[in-house]
Design a protein around this nucleic acid. Sequence first.
DNA 1: AAGCACACCAACCGCGTCCTC
DNA 2: GGAGGACGCGGTTGGTGTGCT
Length: 338
Amino acid sequence: MGRPPCCNESGVKKGPWTPEEDEKLMDYISKHGRGTWRTLPMHAGLNRCGKSCRLRWENYLRPDIKRGRFTEEEEQLIINLHSVLGNKWAKIATHLPGRTDNEIKNYWNTNIRKKLLQMGIDPETHKQRTDFNHLVNLSQLLGMSNLSTSMSPWTNPLGLQADVTTQLAKLQLLQNMLQVMNNTNSLVNVGNPYLLGNQILNGTNTLQVEDPVLRCKECVKPASNHPCLSQTHSDSSHQNISIPGTEKENETATQEVIGYNQNIVTIQQNQAENILPALVASCPRTSTFSQMDNNYKAAQMSTFEAWEKFLLDDDETSGSHWKEILDLTSTSASPISW
DNA sequence: AAGCACACCAACCGCGTCCTC
DNA sequence: GGAGGACGCGGTTGGTGTGCT
């Protein structure tokens, strides 16, 4: 025979906690410690289920809970940990002191998830989405681009100069288009674009990429779908990589992610001037297109030429360039239909 | 000012694992 | 060893606040 049942008595209160109930719970735990949740409500004089008491304590009353908005560093850490651990909110929470799994889960669902979707990142896989639903944003950006050029600075809701707004909208639109083209053709890996500073220009102005997904140190494949982290390699160079599903593996993985995250923070600090998140490579012509076939190259260069015209063009004639770009994009990235 | 839509988040629910008997 | 409850976790819901029309 097991233990007596918990929470099966009818008449236990549900719903929001009152200040009096909070007081009773805090008072009891401060005097007696947590003990067993099953018997705690009775001893504390609460008409609540033990489960409800545990939740209230863990998510709200615990004295070490950190309140307030998540910092950018915390947000970045959550993203990186989620890319390795998935929806293991409790495990993620162990790396964010003072934050509860519930709070992180809520923040993910209400903020981060939406941000990633808007950027064309699949929040589940942390890879660029292969569908084109996020292209809905293109029409909105296009509308904003056109609208802001006709707006005076005084009526701009963002309080920005109209041309600045226009450029921001244009740049974001270009980024989206680049993502689409990269997705479609798999010729240029621009990495996940949601990290500030994940694209670095070296001295030769060639695009280099920092990928936020945890990777095997030896063969640089993502850990999430790589044998290095799904089983121990027979190769001696991989012998220290452990097996997923174990605490050890999760610790190893998250430690690597934290290390990685610190590197990213360093990169971000070095690129303090970079405000916009991972827009296009500053010089698309010099990006590494070594795998391109000739046809694609030709189409790509035409597209870049159209972009150049577009970016240099400040008057209303740019509308024709938009059409040109969109046409070129749709032909070079064939699956897209406008 | 009222009504509506959306965002946020505390709390509940259900399930899997652990633990006790 | 097995039955069954406790615990912890992740998914979901519903109440409340806020902004927009």
